[in-house]
Design a protein around this nucleic acid. Structure first.
Length: 209
DNA sequence: CACCAGGAATGTA
DNA sequence: TACATTCATGGT
């Protein structure tokens, strides 16, 4: 069974993933929504969405759920307290600040949207705290670039469905992208379905819209 | 109380 | 290159 067949099977079982993640799979995302996705992706690293949502809510209440405003901070003390529920308080504030600073110095989301996916990916990977998974998640969901995300869910799903590729990020990503048409909307829905189809106890997702 | 939740940097051989 | 360790919070 090829990946497209498996995708349609997932669709038939779980319906349209856009209903589960409207803010992620939306066709027309605002700049602000894209920023929230990026901020969320940094905060959720090795953390549950439940905890991440608390941190996001704190940022919103302090009017800091913004790349610009985070990048303009003179110190990270307040930011550290606000995102503490997301854990790793000694590293995440700096990671978040660095990502926001990069975006601001690059001319903002609007400017980065025009950049080539490969070049943007390389630039993101230069930021300390941004690895392949985070970079690709940002590319796919915040910038709508056709890059398939490889994460623990993708590994488990691939193994379960006998995808003939081992546990290697680059190999598995190439396989998905070679088997599927290069389409960001397809990748977004496909990956959302992979997650939805195997969520465990914590069924929470990103809440902030 | 033990374990987990969409990682990435760092150190070791 | 490949693998182990470390980092922190809130829920189950």
């Amino acid at each position: 069974m090829n990946l497209m067949t498996l995708y349609y099977k997932l669709l038939s079982e779980y319906r349209d993933p856009v209903n589960y993640w409207p803010q992620w799979c939306a066709v027309n995302k605002s700049v602000n929504e894209r920023e929230k996705i990026i901020i969320g992706m940094i905060l959720v690293q090795r953390t549950s969405w439940h905890n991440t949502n608390i941190a996001l809510k704190n940022l919103k209440q302090s009017n800091l759920l913004s790349v610009e405003k985070i990048a303009e901070l003179s110190n990270l003390n307040n930011l550290t307290e606000l995102i503490r529920p997301a854990g790793f308080f000694q590293s995440k504030p700096t990671r978040l600040f660095d990502v926001c600073t990069f975006i601001k110095k690059s001319g903002g989301i609007e400017n980065l949207l025009n950049k080539d996916a490969d070049n943007l990916r390389a630039e993101l990977l230069h930021i300390k705290g941004v690895g392949k998974e985070t970079a690709d998640t940002i590319l796919l969901y915040a910038f709508d670039k056709p890059v398939f995300i490889i994460d623990e869910y993708t590994y488990r799903w691939s193994e379960k469905h006998d995808v003939p590729i081992g546990r290697d990020y680059d190999d598995l990503q190439l396989y998905f992208q070679n088997q599927l048409e290069s389409d960001a909307a397809l990748y977004q829905k496909f990956h959302a379905l992979i997650i939805i189809s195997q969520r465990g106890r914590d069924k929470s997702l990103m809440e902030i819209v």
